[in-house]
Design a protein around this nucleic acid. Structure first.
Lengths: 327, 327
DNA sequence: TTGTAGGCGTTATCAA
DNA sequence: TTGATAACGCCTACAA
């Protein structure tokens, strides 16, 4: 390659990796590098060192702001330590999920930050056993010892519904998510527990099961508001469904909060775009990303203390004007 | 590696890559692969073949829905042809932009889909000359022959403003973007040209210069509506600023469209979440992604016909209820 | 400070 | 059909 300097390949390598060469050679080498447009082949380097200084990030869906926001923060932290990242999404497809996981491993990433859909412990275990650090985010995988960073979904939901109850609402609807997603189960549990704690019985009719997509939020909210005996408040348990629900409210000209109180989820900007501003549960995306990245960095350094670490972060209820007080 | 089968490494390699082996050996090999948990080292393979079956995608910002939506569609198309992708964002930072570009090249991707911020032709040229196919999206780089997929920004803007003019608006404000971004310049040109074509002079006061961020949309719209002589309509030229503008309208309780007509940009879902539904310019994200991917695939196959190809896609004006007719 | 030699996991060539 | 063997581009001793 850059051996047109007359020097040996080893010397060049040493120079590139910060070794000492005498001044005159330094000049020659630098010039030769410039002239030949030489660039180190990370591939070959990785092959030799078996460290690629690259970490993989695997998420269900790129078009999900919640995911990308976390990823952005993970990257920020990692970048400062000289790590690059390969971002992959699996389009919420279990087949692709495994494929992409393999892809990352085959690319010899040094570690993975992973928001799983599949709950099969074996999938993750086979890599963990191979010594590859994996940090799970947003959703745990029961049955496997793995570092995890998630949010206290149960209490997030609990406090949101509690807010509605203490404001006097007695019939609170919930638009919950699919049963096979951890966060959805936890958020539903929060709804149930707060009812218990306040000695209220749950009307099964008020528990609507969505699929975390915009359409289901739209459909289920439409359904709620067109009943002859609608709830006085509705809690929607993720961002996409919140959007759908708001669309339904708009199209049916429901006055919020006079006719219906609403608490949504996740996206602060969207909450302010809606009029009146939505009261929402916000997750600490930034903290999730940074915590996960820091934890991975720690593992990468060989520090296995506290393994498996489970970080459970707190959410916040951001007040808008979409909840009214019932006397 | 999997040589505990007693067979040679060459045979195994052949088998893995679809070569023929006799039935009995096939069984042995498959079992050994399973037992040892063997996986091909893509790194080493890439080193040898200099084809990684991986393409790089480089965008300014992961948290930008416009970007991720395109990326998702690129990926879909690529995936069907057996290509994987490495997604990188450079956080709208020129330094990082070059760094990530290098990163992708060093990872030996077979091609790159690239939404550039930097307009320096040399950056791209040095890779193009090296035979690496690059497809530019959303923004061209003048001065370099490179395949490009973009949108007809000028006419997108033209038609939006024309809609306002033909509905009787005579004083149309625009919240435009930063001068150093191609799409912003084009969109402003559209605004100017439609004024020319309709024989209207532009009031400099009505041309507000934003930076494509939420805050500037908020600030500039706030400014518009608190003037003593506000415009009767405002056109906002990207998604983030549209959100900011809507927030300003909400907080100031401006009645849309009675007091002010508004046309925004890009996000159909957001447009429906806002009440009344926003009239917006929507870009064909899906088509952009698919076109770019298809073009790259073509180059990857060695088909260089029509190089450099410039695809200029059409936008659509989606009617909401945020524009009123002035008599 | 510099050069030589060996090996990382694959694939490709060619002979067996 | 199979097996030796030589690359691929780089890094790490170790020797000069």
């Amino acid at each position: 390659v850059a051996k047109q300097t007359g020097l040996s390949i080893a010397t060049i390598s040493k120079f590139i990796n910060g070794g000492n060469v005498i001044e005159s050679n330094r000049v020659i080498i630098e010039q030769a590098i410039r002239e030949t447009g030489f660039r180190v082949n990370e591939i070959a380097r990785g092959l030799k060192t078996s460290r690629t200084m690259t970490i993989g990030i695997l998420i269900p869906n790129l078009e999900n702001v919640f995911c990308t926001s976390i990823v952005a923060n993970v990257e920020n932290t990692l970048l400062q330590q000289g790590y690059s990242s390969i971002i992959c999404d699996y389009r919420e497809d279990r087949g692709l999920e495994h494929g992409k996981l393999d892809f990352l491993v085959n690319k010899m990433v040094d570690g993975i930050i992973y928001m799983p859909l599949d709950q099969d412990p074996a999938q993750v275990a086979r890599f963990l056993d191979g010594g590859l650090p994996i940090i799970l985010i947003d959703r745990p995988i029961p049955g496997v010892a793995c570092d995890t960073v998630l949010v206290d979904n149960l209490n997030a939901s609990y406090h949101a519904v509690e807010e509605l109850i203490t404001r006097g609402h007695r019939r609170v609807g919930i638009i919950s998510g699919p049963d096979d997603i951890y966060t959805a189960r936890e958020r539903l549990k929060g709804y149930q527990r707060v009812h218990e704690d306040y000695g209220m019985t749950i009307e099964p009719d008020l528990v609507a099961r969505g699929d975390y997509r915009v359409e289901s939020g739209f459909r289920l909210m439409s359904d709620f508001i067109t009943r002859q005996n609608p709830p006085s408040a509705v809690f929607i348990t993720n961002y996409e469904m919140t959007m759908g629900a708001v669309m339904a409210l708009n199209e049916n000209h429901v006055k919020v909060p006079a006719e219906l109180s609403v608490i949504g989820f996740d996206n602060l900007q969207m909450a302010r775009v809606v009029s009146p501003a939505l009261t929402i549960v916000v997750q600490p995306m930034r903290q999730i990303g940074e915590t996960a990245a820091a934890l991975l960095l720690k593992r990468l350094k060989g520090d296995l203390s506290g393994f498996p670490a489970i970080h459970r972060l707190k959410t916040e209820l951001v007040q808008g004007e979409s909840v009214c007080t019932v006397l």
